[in-house]
Design a protein around this nucleic acid. Structure first.
Lengths: 163, 163
DNA sequence: TTTCATGCAAAATGTTTGCACACGA
DNA sequence: TCGTGTGCAAACATTTTGCATGAAA
């Protein structure tokens, strides 16, 4: 997983979620805490069922049902803590809060996801929007292809084939 | 629907699909012809169920079952005639063959989809890929926000509110 | 103690598949 | 004719929902 560093934020994800819940008269339950802990313990992209599996197989007291996982993921997106995006034919979540805006390179060979940041891309996006009188809120860009590693292997393989 | 013109191609979509089917020892059946006709009769974006509905409600002899619609859409993508992409939480199809490469502005207010073409974007994409040793095959970019029309209405509304 | 959340099971959605019959080349 | 395709219904995969019980504030 690429690491683009962080964006300074005054609250932890946990605190931010607490504020969100409070503002909506919702409760910060044990289950919601378990989910936030799990989700923010690593920076990997994951889909709903990945998380269900992790939290469902637990033998300790920290099991959470499928419905609660799905419901809570929705709230985390609403709270601005997670972003949901389509990757091939999977729907994956990634950290949004405290993490810089970025786009993705997705290797169709080995399924590696590379994050990258490019400021010109952002300006170009805004310029296009301006030309259309369009007010951008967000965007999703995924470039599909093959990564450096896979390109290397293929070249080696091709060379071997030639021998 | 925006119209970006066409790209010159030597075969009609129908002929191209015929070639594809032949190359795979598949048959160009009545149902497949009905689907190609319908899909290429307009440039709108549509999802599988839109098409199922259109072809299922027909009273003439041109009804096609749900399974055949789904199966054929897959072949049309494989044949390079259609592109599939995520739009919000829908999966929509659009023409690929004979249509220029482009990206999308999606209005979250009125659900309008605006297509645009921007060559700098393409070069920038390729530059980013080069920096990462990544070989691009395709990409999906959707910018979410509000369109000129909706921005106008909102401004008017705001002005009225102030009176 | 009141209000909201959970877990379960059922339902809803979107898509794929096995199979008997039908059709295209 | 032969091999493929179709339609149907059933299976699947994913996500949502109604409801009785349980926990947070």
């Amino acid at each position: 997983m690429s690491d683009l560093g962080t964006v300074d934020v005054s609250l932890t994800a946990d605190e931010k979620f607490g504020e969100f819940l409070e503002s909506r008269q919702m409760k910060y339950t044990t289950e919601r805490r378990i989910i936030v802990d799990e989700v923010f313990s690593s920076h990997d992209h994951f889909d709903a069922e990945d998380l269900v599996a992790k939290l469902h197989r637990r033998r300790d007291g920290r099991r959470v049902s499928r419905s609660t996982v799905y419901r809570t993921l929705g709230y985390l997106v609403d709270a601005g803590l997670l972003r949901k995006m389509a990757l091939g034919n999977r729907e994956v979540y990634e950290h949004d809060y405290g993490y810089p805006q970025h786009d993705h390179l997705y290797c169709q060979q080995c399924s590696t996801l590379i994050e990258f940041k490019n400021d010109s891309l952002r300006s170009l996006r805004d310029e296009v929007c301006r030309e259309h009188g369009f007010r951008p809120v967000s965007h999703r860009l995924v470039i599909y292809g093959t990564c450096a590693n896979c390109n290397r292997s293929r070249v080696s393989k091709r060379r071997l084939d030639m021998v």
